[in-house]
């Protein structure tokens, strides 16, 4: 068992590990409005001519044209609003039209198996897009889960690929979004990469439940 884990660790090449960063970047933008530091960091991102690279370059440009206050207003209008924001970035909502439905229950069961628990006193459901991006980052880094690509693949295909691309599209077209439209494009393009790359992993039904 231990040697299997070590093997898996060694198998994490830098390309695999780099995938952490987009997930964390997206998680930070979706979890809270960007502070000055995050905006500053974002302006330093450089993209190349690939679709994802272009999206990143656009986001970098956008970050240099905004301020924490303006981005905060956007965030508020998009996700908090009066009563509710323009968008509801929850898996359950996208999959069923309602919050806290079956997809959330399924997610909780899987998170339990992976050893991820919700912080006490935290009222937000776990199927928020930011939380899911963060879980992916943790699965990649090995903070939890078994370090296997098949585990990542299963989680991604079950809890993310089923809806998050649509959410990012909505973000791209959101009325109140400016900088966040570009966050949406980065997210959509990144998920496309992930989807294609996971198709190159032999996952089958293995992973999460193997060791019960």
């Amino acid at each position: 068992m231990e040697s299997a884990v070590i093997e898996a660790e060694c198998a994490i090449g830098s390309e695999e590990r780099l995938r952490l960063l987009p997930y964390k970047l997206l998680a930070r933008y979706l979890a809270a409005p960007p502070d000055r530091e995050l905006l500053e960091l974002t302006t330093r991102l450089e993209g190349d001519g690939t679709p994802f690279g272009r999206a990143v370059a656009e986001l970098a440009a956008g970050a240099s044209e905004t301020t924490p206050a303006a981005a905060g207003d956007e965030y508020h209008a998009l996700f908090i609003g009066l009563g509710r924001g323009e968008l509801l970035p929850y898996a359950s909502y996208y999959l069923t039209g309602f919050l806290q439905e079956r997809p959330l229950a399924d997610l909780r069961a899987d998170l339990g198996r992976l050893g991820v628990a919700r912080a006490e006193g935290c009222p937000e459901p776990e199927d928020h897009a930011a939380a899911l991006c963060e879980v992916m980052a943790g699965l990649i880094s090995g903070s939890f889960g078994d370090g296997r690509l098949s585990t990542q693949k299963r989680f991604f295909e079950t809890h993310i690929a089923t809806w998050m691309g649509r959410f990012f599209e909505d973000l791209e077209g959101a009325r109140t979004a400016r900088l966040y439209r570009r966050v949406g494009t980065v997210g959509r393009r990144f998920l496309e990469i992930e989807e294609t790359a996971f198709a190159m992993v032999d996952g089958h039904e293995a992973a999460v439940s193997v060791d019960g």
């Binding site: 898996a8 198998a11 090449g13 390309e15 695999e16 780099l18 995938r19 960063l21 987009p22 991102l45 450089e46 993209g47 190349d48 690939t50 994802f52 690279g53 990143v56 370059a57 296997r148 690509l149 098949s150 585990t151 693949k153 990144f190 990469i193 294609t196 790359a197 190159m200 992993v201 032999d202 996952g203 089958h204 293995a206 992973a207 193997v210």
Partner: peptide
């Protein structure tokens, strides 16, 4: 159970995650 097909690493490289 999670053997990677040969293309994945190359694909990730080309996809400019490094951006």
């Amino acid at each position: 159970s999670s053997r990677t097909k040969p293309g994945r690493r190359d694909f990730l490289k080309l996809a400019s995650i490094g951006a």
